[in-house]
Nucleic acid binder design. Structure first.
Lengths: 199, 199
DNA sequence: GTCTATATCCCGATAGAC
DNA sequence: GTCTATCGGGATATAGAC
């Protein structure tokens, strides 16, 4: 039996160039299919067909269908955190929450297929880390207050949850109406958030 | 062939009491199963098993699986709009948005199984009315400004989208942490929303 | 290394016994 | 009115040819 890169052991030795290419292609078509038809309607057969190969070939490169979609989810999530993280790091502490909101909405508006995939991922994900969603933004809000020399203030957890949900709403609206002005919406949300944060 | 109440014609003649009971029971177990295991994992077999009958029996009372879940969705949606609608009607126009937010969060926090079902319904729903989600709240916001004699103001569509998303976020957090104080969160959101509305 | 063929399972739905 | 038995289809995954 040949070495499976997605073996249960999970050892991540280097992949050959052509295998790397195949995996990237499969991840890409999976993202497209989920974005277009949703998670439930994305079967192995459709992934294989979209990639121009057979089901068996797909399962040679990935151990299971779940492994394919997990790789696709990891890809879009990585792109998101890299982009947003860079924007946050480049902003002064008291404007970091604004940078977070602005870039998060910007990224998802620029990559609507990623947005659909991330939404479906959060829905299907069993055992989600409850805090993972709001903790980063809550930390930014806390630091922003500190940077302005303010004492204990509003509940940053709730503010982060409200802002996170609002971001989802704005991005979701953009998915249904490509003409929706997400930049204006982002600035409205930022104004509300900063007003509540520094109150 | 006996008369099928869910026949394509859709004539809604009165149902017998016992049939009414069976349908209610099936709707209830479907809500529970979707809330617990999600939409995709809720099969006819599981519905039948949870109700203590067989698949065939379920399909006697409903024309198809989709008809069962559609009935369950209609049930939770009806409960939501009735509850929220009454609260909105009982409030003065300039506090109607607050009443909407407060009761929406309250209702979904009090009925977490309904919340899960509604979320899954919105995800799976193909061809959603794009405006259906934010239009009602946007109208309330518009009327609230008018009630206070204010002229043209902020974009009520965006405010409604932000508030709607924030509601989802708060309710979602409650689903993962039963100890989360949704009432305090609701008041925070209302303060932010009214501040932006009457600015 | 990739594909064909197949195995196995579960899905929704139907037919007909009772 | 409810159940048993079964159908046809599509799903994931495996075995083995080449």
């Amino acid at each position: 039996m040949s070495v499976r890169r997605t073996s249960p052991g999970g050892e991540d030795r280097p992949l050959s160039l052509i295998e790397r290419t195949r995996r990237d292609q499969l991840v890409q078509v999976t993202i497209d299919l989920v974005a277009e038809h949703g998670y439930a309607a994305t079967s192995l057969a459709r992934i294989a067909q979209a990639a121009g190969i057979t089901k068996g070939a797909v399962l040679y490169h990935f151990a299971s269908k779940d492994a394919v979609v997990a790789a696709a989810q990891a890809h879009v999530l990585d792109a998101l955190v890299t982009d947003v993280g860079a924007a946050v790091d480049a902003a002064p502490a008291d404007r970091a929450p604004a940078a977070y909101v602005r870039r998060m909405i910007g990224h998802l508006a620029e990559h609507p297929d990623h947005a659909r995939m991330i939404i479906e991922a959060m829905i299907n994900d069993d055992r989600p880390e409850p805090e993972a969603r709001w903790r980063p933004l809550a930390a930014l809000l806390w630091n922003a207050r500190e940077a302005r020399g303010l004492g204990p203030g509003p509940d940053t957890r709730t503010l982060a949850i409200i802002a996170g949900g609002a971001i989802d709403g704005i991005v979701g609206e953009r998915l249904q109406d490509a003409g929706y002005d997400t930049e204006a919406a982002a600035e409205s949300l930022i104004a509300m958030l900063e007003s509540a944060t520094f109150a």
